[in-house]
Every structure is written in C-alpha cells, then in structure tokens.
Design a binder for these strands. Structure first.
Lengths: 199, 199
DNA sequence: TTTTCTCTACCTATCGATAGGTAGATACAA
DNA sequence: TTGTATCTACCTATCGATAGGTAGAGAAAA
C-alpha cells in the first residue's frame, strides 16, 4: 500500500483539487470549492488534509505515482526506445487533447517561485525523476548512451512547452507537431519498429 | 506614442505587477501588494488601472512591445538566421539566468484556463505573434521556406519548457542545453557565421 | 477653475484555519 | 448483555486576514 493510495472521500477531494490545480495553479484551489463540488463542508476537507500544503503535496505525490505506473519501466530490455517514448508522448497527448488541460507539473513549475517551499521542492523532485526516466528510456538495451542528439531534459521541455502553447492558443497542432517530431527523432531508431499511437 | 508607453506612477505599478505576475501568476498580484511596494495606497492603484484585468492587460501589452523592440525585424535581409535566433534565445536566456524568473507568457499560459477571458485571449495573441516572428526569422532572405526540420512553434515550445525546468529545478544547464542545441540546429545554417552570445 | 492625482474610510466576499460538538461504528471488559 | 471508551467522519460556527472595489474629500498643478 503506497502513500499515494487513496480511496473514498480523500480520493474524491484529491480529484477535485488536482483538476483545479491544473486549471489555475495552487492558488486557484480552495477548501470551499472542493467541499462544494463534492457536497461536504470545508471543515471536512481539513479533516483529511489539515493544511493546504498537505493537500498540494498529496496531489503531486499521487500524480507522480499514477504517471510512473503509466510509463512503466524505462529499462525493460524487451522493449524498444520507440515504445517507451510513445508511452511518454501518450501521457502528454491525452492530457492535452483528451483532458484539454495542461499537466500538473507544468502549471506548478511556472509558479514555483511563489509556492510554499515544500511544494516547490516536491515539484523539483518530480522533474528530476521524469528526466531521469526519460534518459533511461532513451538508452537502448545493451547500449550505454542515449539515442539521438537530444538530451532527456530537452524532450521533456519540448513536450511541456508544446502543451502550454497548444492549450493557451487552442491550436492542438502545436502539440501534435512536437509529438510527431519526437517520435521521428528520438523514437525512430529503436530495434523494433515505432508503433505509432493513433493521433 | 504607443499604448504601451507608460511613465511615472503607472510605469512603477506595471513594474511591480509584472514582477509579481512572473513569480506567481495573475492571482498572485494584489493591489495592496503593489501599493505597499511603491509606497502609495491601493486606491491609488485603482485610479491608474480601475480593474485587475486592466492591469493584467497593460502588463502583457507592454511586455510584448518591449520584447518586440528587443527582437527587432524578423526579415531584415542584411541579417542571418543565426543572428535573429541568437536574439530570440538571448531574451529567454536573460530572463532565466539573469532575472531568475520564468517569462510572463509562460506563467500566464499555464493558468490560461483560469484567467479572465480578455487575458486568456491576449496571451493567445502574444503566442501567435511570437511564433509568427520566429517563423519569419527562420526563413533566410531570398528563400521561401524556413531553415531546419523544426517548426517555429517547436522552437518557442522548447525555450519555454526549458525555462520552466531550469527555474523549477534550479538547474540552469537544463536551459543552456536547449539554447545551444537551438543555435546549432536552427541558427547554424545561415549565410553569416553564427555569432554566439556569451554563455 | 478644471484636471490630475492621491488620500481616508469604507464595503462585501472569500480565504485558510480552528474550536468544539456529534452520530455511528468498533472494541473490550464486567 | 451492558457500560465504557475510542475512533472515524463529518458537522456548525467563527476567527483574523486579505481580496477587489468604491465614494468622496483634499491637494496641487495646468
């Protein structure tokens, strides 16, 4: 049982908090909003998450755990680089085009300088973890150096930046062009044929 | 006299508002904060900018005008692509490493879904303008198609994303690797030799 | 005298947070 | 089986702080 397994009310609260956070950042989350959305009182939200920082921290923690599960292992030798990068892009793709929202870390990263220190630190950890995953994912099994003349940080930066542009301008092609470019550039040289996702 | 020429109190107010906005987004700006920072009363801020949306709009307007001046013409035939892209990167470079803050559009873009409509629309216009500038800048004089297998939107997305990563993780190299990659990839094939900025 | 700017003195709404209480379930001993 | 205790999951009511915004007076320059 991980620290990020929530059920019942607590999970409902985190769902609403995460959605609000991805729309307007940490300051856009309010105990009253959450309570009203669920149909309880704000004091009950405080029962589950005493301080706002606790709530924010739990949201990020669960978010990363869920994404990690979705991404899977970055170093499974039975898998091609293309398959891994396809899963990475898929996460961003769904967030941008299906959910129509920017990813959590993107919003919080933008306002990191104004976040409670605990949250700013947690976001920093999230980014480092994701870059680390991507670097491993870009390294083909049996090799010791990543594919492509592109660092893992650049891959993540491209996805995040494209996501913001696409959402803010309501022009999904601004994300799609980055996604297909990444699949060509980073995912194109794995041992297995790139299995393109349906776009 | 442009709409973005402000002086005296109004300019002071915009300076503080812009700084706060770049740290914590639109919601982090408050009339009381601004007034206290300058040494006047919040009602006086309302005199210059009646509503918060007016203030936000003026900040973006002035921000774009200043950046446009810094970028110069994207189609001066006497200039290489490298020189133009170098100026573009330079703007982001200074914001990230000298000012230590994410750029304005980046923060506001992240919370675009929660912004007053007038501001969300204005940010969208800003992004479209910047992508347009970059597309022109990537097209060498006398040619009709851009240099490099990279669209203008991807260049901006990379810069913005790298900026967020660098600030949120306090790892400037995450920005620098994108900057030098862009100079190699996009700026490297202009008629004049790429004049590298001091990094 | 009119315009420009800043002031004092408010307003209402909302924020995160706390105190204190309660209904219901569970557990355990007499 | 009854009485006591404890825990969970909420509740109402309220706190001080802060948000954006307004009315009207005062000062100073044109």
């Amino acid at each position: 049982m991980s620290v990020s397994d929530y059920s019942g009310r607590a999970a409902e609260i985190l769902d609403v908090a995460e959605a609000r956070m991805r729309e307007g950042g940490f300051e856009a989350v309010s105990f009253r909003d959450i309570a009203a959305a669920i149909g309880i009182k704000s004091a009950s939200v405080h029962y589950h998450f005493p301080h706002k920082t606790d709530l924010g921290h739990a949201v990020i923690e669960r978010y990363q755990a869920r994404f990690a599960e979705q991404l899977g292992a970055p170093d499974d030798p039975g898998e091609s680089v293309a398959e891994r990068i396809s899963r990475l892009c898929g996460g961003y793709h769904d967030a941008t085009l299906k959910e129509g929202k920017v990813c959590l870390a993107c919003v919080l990263g933008g306002e990191a300088l104004d976040l409670p220190k605990a949250l700013a630190d947690r976001i920093s950890v999230y980014f480092s973890w994701l870059i680390d995953w991507t670097e491993k994912a870009m390294t083909p099994g049996g090799s010791d150096r990543p594919v492509a003349d592109l660092k893992a940080g650049q891959v993540i930066a491209s996805l995040q930046g494209a996501m913001i542009l696409a959402i803010a301008t309501k022009r999904p092609e601004l994300f799609l062009e980055t996604e297909s470019w990444l699949m060509r550039t980073v995912g194109g040289s794995g041992p297995a044929a790139p299995r393109m996702r349906s776009l």
